[in-house]
Write a protein that binds this DNA or RNA. Structure first.
Lengths: 400, 400
DNA sequence: GCAACTTTTTAAAAAATTTAAAAAGTTGTG
DNA sequence: CACAACTTTTTAAATTTTTTAAAAAGTTGC
């Protein structure tokens, strides 16, 4: 039933997904409703079995508050993480834990950029084969590369759907609410809600992957810009390198700072006969990458050097972000984050060189704990984030 | 009296300052209170003489709404615009019109960076001499160069006050609420509330002055970053020019894009014997600037060329902003905006070169109507913006 | 071990919002 | 050109929510 009550119940569930264990008072503030109302809603939710009373918190000097948390196994999400070649699917629960095997589909967007039917078949197969309890699935969250206009549900780079909304299309076929967003935005959302940037007001999340992306958290919220295209970090002009970028310009950050660049540099170095523990590098990018990073983590000088070079270039980009946005935190996330803390020193060096010291000192830099899983977790976060939306239109406008 | 009622009355007055003429329904949405409550507050405000019923709006197909606006001459603001050499004071009314002669004080921050007592004396003299009705003054808004931390009321670059709040200090002496902010932020606020960016959700305001500053409007609000230092645009590293910047680094945007650079270039060109309508250039910067801009507006090639060069460099900076923040609008404001639309072509050229075309097409660029007055208007906007704050603490948190 | 102080929870009073109805205008059709 | 159908604003009554006050449950220090 679509009522104001159910709207606020969903809002409470959402806050518990993001907050895990909360007192009535805390929830009251988060959903912006008074305590009497909140407590009434909470007791109803307990009766319905959606949430449980999970003991009392340690006292802060007064009566110990009753704590509430989500009942286990009531909420599942299908999360879909696309990159240019592979699409990964998994079922995630409210605590952002993966509760199914991840399924990998080969959907090559280079060869077939508009293969929306392929994506849908992929989803249908996954739902059929994974033993999914469909009534528990509250939504499907899909992260994809490209220029995504979230409000229109359109991706201007891939999955062309004749100008019609992709989520609406899939939702009609499968019968579960669908949400899409840009991959870098989803990674930022994952970090903001569950990861390194949890609880931070302003944070920049770098998606260090085959390209280089940026998701921005401003005032605790994902900032998408006026048309949803904010964070086009990769094509900022920073180099006079005469290297052509796929965007048509040259000198873009992406031409000197991405995992693709790392692999190319390693290949080139091996060809030139540089010594390294890496003897051969695969033509399969995934395999090549894990070879390089494994070598670097073991201390192989060539791998470390080349990763550092790229990290330094990312650092130049970060210096600009710090000047313009004065963020609290910068998170290095995405596939490249598996290289870990070795990335930080060269980045810091670039920042020292290109940043006003006072400004740089206010911004922390850290590597994500999620690394390659960030996009999947972000897909779940996206669905939770939208859980109470579109349920009770007239309330939606009232409640901030 | 400090009550919830007076809090919302002030909020209504604030919205009328920014909106001029509004219907009860519009106000109800803006202050986030229901129509019955809003209408009750409005009728009380009419009785008190603060606002007036100003006729009926044109019908949009139904009953014509009663419109409300501020009563004339009830609200005055003292606005103070500081630059490194001069401090300008004026009385501004709720419609951002100047209603006193502007008074200029010589307060040289290069020679005496921490001359807070000088500023206070300046204010006291102004209040004494200008025939000011003190009971109408709702606040003093001060814009100043430097790193300003608004929440702490501290300027880290100038006017050191032993770590204590500058506004609190002045307020205790003069007895009127005081608010400070960075000059570029104030200019952005002026444009957002009264100028070229009025009603825009995301806008970047370039303060083209002796240096180059940036104020950002994100989600209709001034974005200050985590420590209030966002918008340090001037020190983004963009050039390999080996020119030392006052920040200690080289290659900063400011070294190639500011009015100071324009004047230096003109001086250099005249020394080299280039032909121009400009025969002599003053050592007084203000005078020199107006000479150059007047010449450019009359079509003098040298002046136009050199202004264009600098505008092109600003355009390079703007290209970065567009990539990162995807703004709706970019406003060229500050002293340099007096040069007018001639700045736009070279900027657009830089954007064409350094921006992804699709992205650039979503962002408009315009020159401010305020030019040199923007900071004064911003000071007034700052006071109005804060008019209802700190009046009723417990409501403050509740009402978004 | 008990008084003084905190904090959460419940209950009653006050204020706000929602819903419905009335009032004031506009527009299109016969 | 008058009147019905439709809009939009304003007022009034019914609900809901928030506020305020009091009670309950703990903690801490003397």
């Amino acid at each position: 039933m679509i009522t104001k009550t159910s709207y606020f119940k969903r809002k409470i569930i959402k806050e518990l997904c993001f907050g895990n264990v909360l007192s009535a008072q805390q929830i009251s503030v988060l959903v912006n409703r008074s305590l009497p109302v909140t407590i009434k809603l909470l007791s109803e939710l307990v009766h319905e079995g959606m949430i449980i009373e999970s003991g009392f918190a340690l006292s802060t000097g007064g009566r110990r508050p009753q704590m509430y948390s989500l009942a286990a196994g009531k909420i599942h999400i299908i999360s879909v993480a696309m990159d240019q070649v592979f699409t990964t699917l998994a079922v995630i629960d409210a605590q952002h834990h993966q509760i199914s095997h991840a399924r990998k589909c080969y959907l090559n967007l280079f060869e077939n950029p508009n293969n929306l039917t392929g994506l849908i078949r992929c989803l249908e197969d996954f739902i059929k084969e994974a033993s999914i309890e469909k009534d528990k699935i509250i939504g499907i969250g899909i992260g994809m590369p490209g220029f995504v206009d979230v409000s229109k549900g359109i991706n201007y780079s891939f999955l062309d759907n004749d100008g019609k909304s992709i989520p609406d299309n899939i939702e009609q076929l499968i019968g579960i609410p669908v949400f899409i967003d840009n991959d870098s935005s989803l990674i930022a959302l994952a970090e903001s809600k569950f990861g390194a940037a949890k609880g931070k007001k302003n944070a920049m999340v770098i998606n260090f992957g085959w390209g280089i992306g940026l998701g921005m958290i401003l005032n605790y919220q994902l900032f998408r810009g006026n048309n949803g295209f904010a964070g086009e970090f990769s094509h900022v002009h920073l180099f006079d390198n005469n290297k052509l970028c796929e965007c048509g310009k040259s000198g873009c950050l992406e031409t000197e700072a991405s995992l693709m660049v790392v692999i190319e540099k390693v290949k080139q170095a091996l060809k030139e006969g540089k010594v390294s523990a890496i003897k051969h590098i695969s033509d399969d990018f995934e395999e090549a990458l894990s070879t390089v990073i494994r070598a670097a983590l073991k201390g192989d000088q060539l791998a470390v050097d080349l990763l550092s070079e790229v990290a330094y270039n990312i650092g130049r980009g970060i210096a600009i972000l710090i000047h313009i946005l004065n963020p609290e935190l910068i998170v290095i996330s995405g596939r490249g984050a598996t290289a870990g803390n070795m990335l930080l020193a060269p980045m810091q060096q670039a920042i020292n060189k290109y940043c006003i010291p006072r400004l740089a000192s206010y911004t922390q830099i850290t590597v994500s704990p999620f690394s390659a899983n960030a996009e999947l977790i972000g897909g779940a976060a996206l669905v939770i984030e939208n859980y109470e939306k579109n349920i009770y239109q007239s309330v939606k406008n009232n409640a901030a």
